[in-house]
Amino acid sequence: MKTSNPVLARLGQAAERERSGYAQPGPYGYGQPGVPQQYPAQAGYPAAPPAVTPMTLDDVIVKTVALLGILGVSAAAAWVLVPDALISAAWIGAAMVGLVLGLIISFSRMANPALVVAYAVVEGAFVGLVSKAYETAFQGIVLQAVVATFGVFFVMTMLYKARVIRATPKFVKGMIAVMAGLFAVMLINFVFAIFGVNTGLRDGSPLAIGFSLVCIVVAALSFVLSFKEVEDGVRMGLPQRYSWTAAFGIVVSLVWLYLELLRLISYFQGDD
């Protein structure tokens, strides 16, 4: 089964190697040709492969809800426990750790539930601290951003289910290129900000508003990639643990969309 998603392709290859790590069945079953299956381990002959439970859509939904729950608890804990004087340093640290974990998970060839859960914990702390800073400046903004985020997610789910938006190979390649470009721009802007250089991308100017709108549109469309990844993973019969990787992709898009909506809404709050 071919897929245009390079990450899913790597996972599919790893899963296929896992399934094919056993000898093909001979006339008596699995093992060397001509050797009865009642002696599978004798003389080093491999035994029959164990049954592998494939991932399902329900698995992905359960894992996604679980990760969002972990992220929410971590965010609430960080909001309450981290002193105001340490918020900036703490959220920068959490952002860097979350970025490293996210890259490891994204480029890993094997599903690692422990890393995915660790990411949810760290990213939850980051989201909680950023949300607290915004809520302190603009009361009620967090609730608005949360409602808007899940509203966009619901709309994208309906559009994908109705096949209004399709994850064609060209769409997938284009989205990957655009997201890589946006990531590079945001990283460069972050480095400039550390040295006190204002690029105008995050200061509430018309340029900043336009950039946030672009990010929001791309973040919303990234759900299409996640939905396609889930669909292809189920169709390819990937092992159940890969549902953690699929859920991770959805959570990453939700967090990105939420943060961009939070920032955009803040631009229109005014000076009270």
Rank of each mutant, 00 (worst) to 15 (best):
T3N: 08
N5H: 13
A9K: 15
A9Y: 15
R10C: 08
A14N: 14
S20I: 10
S20F: 15
G21H: 10
A23M: 15
A23K: 13
P25F: 09
P25C: 09
Y28L: 04
Q32K: 13
P33W: 13
Q38P: 12
Q38C: 08
P40V: 01
Q42M: 10
G44M: 09
G44P: 01
P46R: 07
P49H: 08
P50V: 09
T56D: 10
D59L: 05
D59V: 02
V62R: 11
G69M: 03
G69D: 01
L71F: 13
V73C: 06
S74L: 06
A76P: 11
V80Q: 12
L81H: 06
L81C: 08
V82K: 06
P83R: 00
A85W: 08
S88L: 14
W91G: 09
A95W: 03
G98R: 04
G102F: 07
G102N: 06
L103E: 09
S106P: 11
S106G: 12
M110A: 09
A111G: 07
L115N: 12
A118N: 11
V121R: 11
V121T: 12
E123P: 03
G128W: 02
G128M: 05
S131A: 00
A137F: 00
Q139L: 10
L143G: 02
L143W: 07
V146R: 00
V146G: 02
A148E: 00
G151F: 04
F153W: 04
M156F: 01
T157I: 04
L159Q: 00
T168I: 06
P169G: 07
F171I: 08
A177M: 14
V178M: 15
A184C: 10
A184S: 13
V185R: 14
V197K: 11
V197W: 12
D203P: 05
G204Y: 09
P206S: 06
P206C: 11
A208Q: 03
I209A: 06
S212K: 11
L213T: 10
V214C: 03
I216G: 03
I216K: 04
S222Y: 06
F223P: 07
V224C: 08
F227Q: 02
K228A: 08
Q240W: 00
R241G: 00
W244L: 00
T245F: 01
A246C: 00
F248Y: 05
I250H: 05
S253A: 04
L254R: 09
L257V: 05
Y258F: 15
L261K: 12
L261M: 13
L262A: 09
R263N: 15
R263S: 14
R263P: 10
D272Q: 12
